[in-house]
Design a protein around this nucleic acid. Sequence first.
DNA 1: ACCCGATCCTAGCACCGCTAGACAACGGAG
DNA 2: CTCCGTTGTCTAGCGGTGCTAGGATCGGGT
Lengths: 192, 192
Amino acid sequence: MSVQERKERERAERERLIVATARELAEQQGWDAVTTRQLAQRIEYSQPVLYSHFRGKREIIGAVALEGAAELAVAVRAATAAASGPRAKVTALAHAYLDFAKDNPAVYDAIFQLDAGLAFAHEDTPEPLKDAFAALLECLGQVAGDGVHPGLLTEVFWAALHGVATLSRAGRVPPEFAEQRVELLVDRLAMV
Amino acid sequence: MSVQERKERERAERERLIVATARELAEQQGWDAVTTRQLAQRIEYSQPVLYSHFRGKREIIGAVALEGAAELAVAVRAATAAASGPRAKVTALAHAYLDFAKDNPAVYDAIFQLDAGLAFAHEDTPEPLKDAFAALLECLGQVAGDGVHPGLLTEVFWAALHGVATLSRAGRVPPEFAEQRVELLVDRLAMV
DNA sequence: ACCCGATCCTAGCACCGCTAGACAACGGAG
DNA sequence: CTCCGTTGTCTAGCGGTGCTAGGATCGGGT
């Protein structure tokens, strides 16, 4: 059955190629430029090949989103682990989150902005998404303060970060006071 | 010149019809259903007529966005004016904002989510957008606290509201604790 | 009454996501 | 070694999108 195994390996490899190419193209030229024709040409296959791996374009975006969510969780955990003291940890988390959004705008859009057919806040939420939320919760749950549910504070803090991320990237808020905004968020929302 | 005036009036009337129809269709069936063909059919004109009023679809979305921003400003001002005391005013503002987002999802998307080619945070920002921000500033500027720039707090509070609005509408956060989230936001971000 | 400009529509372009059906390549059976 | 059947891939095309060129038609000014 070595033949079949080889084919499966090649197939998995090609699937990774599709996702990586979609991501790369989206970061370079925006998601509008990620058409099935363009994508097929870049991976040097014809369009229908895409549909033998994914049900449609949405599912490709979804794959990029899951990959990105996993990376976001890693980035957040690394940042909080490197900082010492609750306040520094929360500040590091905020920066890690906002930096991820700034450095990977297309991926961030795939996760949160575009409808990639992802379920959230249910038991059938994909693992990477739950894990990304868990990464936030691990840090923020410790600074919720008395009488405040850790999950609730995490949701609100996350929402605030998400708001800052999207509004600043869309130019809806001036970029020069980014640092002060983070400070204000940390000072007031977290009880440290 | 009465003839020319009548024509101008009819033209302005038709422009309003286009915007109103686009908005209605978007709220009913989502922006995806707002195609130039569908829109043209609803106003009982052919497609090219749309392009004699607007440069393209983006500009139509932009018109809906501006209309919505003006309404949002009105709603926020009405809510804060009706409440007495700083804390009640801020809470009312938050509810007015989130209710607007919930009740007019398509319009809210036009303002903040879709790229309608609108400039923000510049001097050439359209008046309704500046005014909507001013409406937030009028209330939140009074609860910034010592040493915090009113504009900065307004931006952060606005971002938090925006985050809550988008994440809850996309089902990325459970709906049952909406009230508690608002309370937490008001309690911590505003100095009241 | 005629002309001419404004106004509107038909038809079409290039692109999109997606799919049916033809075709080739290749492992396994006789 | 040959033939068959499956598996995989491609070409071609469908119905849709935003947008526009060019012709017809209507109506006010002379």
